[in-house]
């Protein structure tokens, strides 16, 4: 096991896959000479050269479309968006082309492209640069969406994404890039669609993903002090979601809290809550609780930004409501 940063794990995944398969290439703003806006492509330009590590102009729709075409023609593009906020400009390519071409061509074309970049709030970046847009992608049939929270998971899932025959969106955590963690020394992948139980517990199931995993684990510690034994599930993939992992846990705990950084309405958390409330109905001893960012544009002020986001305290409070322990 080596302890490396999240951004290094991404660079390792890219390097290993590019070594393994010469159809794999990386394209995006500042990925080559600058080695990535968040330094996720360190050393790749030097190793693979300008044909496989390509600096794109500021034209998200353009280079995303180029990636779709390259994938249809048999290559394995990894398209980096500087942040997922800017990827909104390329939604047409992702939703109308990447996600649809396999079914609309009756299987004649595939689009094995990876679109990746950071999502979520960082620190005082304002409303336009602090968004959790996973619901935009998780909503679309034909796409897969992974949201790894740890260096180990981002490496394993990015490798799976590159090898997958479908278009995969990999949303990284903007504040996670410097996070260090254990990564296995040997070759490994993490399958898309598999959740991980981060902490076992018997009293309440806390379902979350991406960087909210950390606030949720902290909440579990707070709850433990009050005698509530929380189970924390990191979905890791938000489409397709690991339904069995969620329902198995809820069958054990009879209580569920869904935690997400983004907005509440029509989002991934809403869908998880719906799953538990329908398929898991007879296992519930309390309504499914939800914790999420406020339903509004992110404020710039530091104090307000803090209030707008879930914290260990607000998560613990929701878990206590679910346990009738208010």
């Amino acid at each position: 096991m080596a302890v490396i940063a999240y951004r290094e794990a991404i660079a390792q995944a890219l390097r290993e896959e590019m070594e393994r398969d010469d159809r794999v290439f990386l394209m995006g703003e500042e990925v080559a000479l600058y080695q990535g806006a968040f330094k996720c492509s360190q050393g790749l330009y030097e190793r693979f050269g300008e044909k496989r590590v390509i600096d794109a102009p500021i034209s998200e729709a353009g280079f995303a479309g180029l990636g779709v075409g390259a994938a249809m023609a048999g290559l394995r593009p990894v398209i980096e968006f500087m942040t997922m906020n800017f990827a909104v400009l390329a939604l047409d390519q992702v939703i109308n082309n990447a996600a649809k071409i396999y079914s609309m061509s009756a299987g004649q074309f595939r689009c094995p492209a990876v679109f990746r970049g950071p999502g979520g709030a960082a620190h005082q970046l304002g409303a336009q640069h602090s968004q959790c847009l996973e619901a935009q992608y998780a909503h679309i049939p034909g796409l897969k969406v992974v949201m790894p929270a740890t260096p180990r998971d981002v490496k394993g899932l990015l490798k799976s994404a590159i090898r997958d025959e479908s278009p995969v969106i990999c949303i990284e955590g903007e504040t996670l890039y410097g996070l260090k963690g254990d990564v296995p020394d040997n070759e490994y992948i993490i399958p898309i669609g598999e959740a991980e139980v981060k902490r076992e517990g018997k009293d309440v199931t806390l379902v979350t993903w991406s960087k909210m995993v950390y606030a949720t684990l902290d909440a579990a510690e707070l709850l433990a002090k009050e005698g509530i034994d929380a189970e924390v599930i990191d979905l890791r993939t938000v489409r397709p979601v690991d339904k069995a992992a969620i329902l198995t846990s809820v069958a054990k705990t009879n209580r569920c809290v869904v935690i997400e950084e983004g907005w509440p309405w029509a989002g991934v958390g809403a869908s998880v809550a719906a799953l538990v409330s329908t398929t898991g109905f007879d296992d519930l001893d309390a309504p499914v609780e939800r914790v999420h960012g406020i339903d509004g544009p992110m404020p710039y002020a530091k104090s307000l930004e803090h209030l707008a986001l879930p914290t260990a305290e607000t998560i613990a409070a929701a878990a206590k409501r679910a346990c009738y322990r208010e």
């Binding site: 009879n254 007879d282 296992d283 519930l284 001893d285």
Partner: peptide, 14 residues
């Protein structure tokens, strides 16, 4: 017992 419809969690009912 509160009169009228019984409020119970799905698990309690099961």
């Amino acid at each position: 017992v509160t009169p009228g419809r019984v409020k119970a969690s799905p698990l309690a009912r099961r």
